Amino acid sequence: MKRYFIFAISFILLFLLFQVLSGMLLTFTYTPDVDDAWNMSANLSQEVIIKSSQSSFLLLLFIAFLSATIAYFISKKMN
């Protein structure tokens, strides 16, 4: 059971690290098109909707953790 907890904690830390690094890479390589955005702004709605995206990230983390757990136990059962 100790090996499972080490695996789970290292998986979560590596998953978070890769998420942050991929976000940084996408941010650094993104080049916005200001002219196109300005032309599209006339068609936008004037209503502001505030929505948190944290729940989707936690769901993604939970699904990844669950799949890693299942994969761990399947690989342990095969040996």
Rank of each mutant, 00 (worst) to 15 (best):
Leu17Ser: 12
Asp33Ala: 10
Lys51Pro: 01
Ser55Thr: 08
Ser75Gln: 09
Ala68His: 05
Leu58Val: 00
Leu17Asn: 10
Leu59Glu: 04
Asp35Trp: 02
Ser10Met: 12
Asn39Cys: 08
Val48Asp: 01
Leu58Ala: 01
Ile50Ser: 02
Gly23Val: 01
Ser53Arg: 08
Ala68Tyr: 03
Ile74Val: 13
Lys76Val: 09
Asn43Cys: 09
Phe11Ala: 03
Asp35Ser: 09
Tyr72Met: 04
Gln54Glu: 14
Thr69Lys: 03
Phe57Ser: 11
Pro32Arg: 02
Leu60Asn: 10
Gln19Ala: 14
Leu58Glu: 01
Ser75Ile: 05
Phe15Ala: 10
Tyr30Ala: 10
Leu14Met: 13
Ala37Glu: 06
Phe15Thr: 11
Ile12Gly: 02
Phe73His: 12
Lys51Met: 08
Ile70Gly: 05
Ser52Gly: 01
Ser10Glu: 14
Gln54Cys: 11
Ala37Ile: 07
Leu13Arg: 00
Asn43Met: 11
Phe18Trp: 11
Ser41Tyr: 11
Ser56Val: 12
Thr31Lys: 13
Leu44Asp: 07
Asp35Cys: 01
Leu60Cys: 05
Thr31Asn: 12
Leu16Thr: 13
Leu16Val: 14
Met40Asn: 13
Ile50Ala: 07
Ala71Met: 15
Lys77Ser: 07
Tyr72Cys: 02
Ile49Val: 15
Pro32Asp: 00
Ala71Glu: 14
Ile12Gln: 06
Asp33Lys: 13
Ser56Phe: 11
Ser22Phe: 12
Ala64His: 03
Met24Val: 15
Phe18Met: 14
Ile12Val: 07
Phe73Pro: 01
Thr69Pro: 01
Ser67Ala: 00
Ser56Gln: 14
Leu16Trp: 15
Ser45Pro: 02
Met40Val: 07
Asn43Ile: 06
Phe15Lys: 09
Pro32Lys: 04
Asp33Cys: 05
Glu47Asp: 14
Met24Thr: 11
Leu21Ala: 00
Ala64Gln: 10
Thr29Pro: 03
Thr29Trp: 10
Ile74Asn: 04
Asp33Asn: 13
Thr29Ile: 09
Ala68Met: 08
Leu59Thr: 05
Phe11Met: 00
Leu13Pro: 00
Gln19Ser: 13
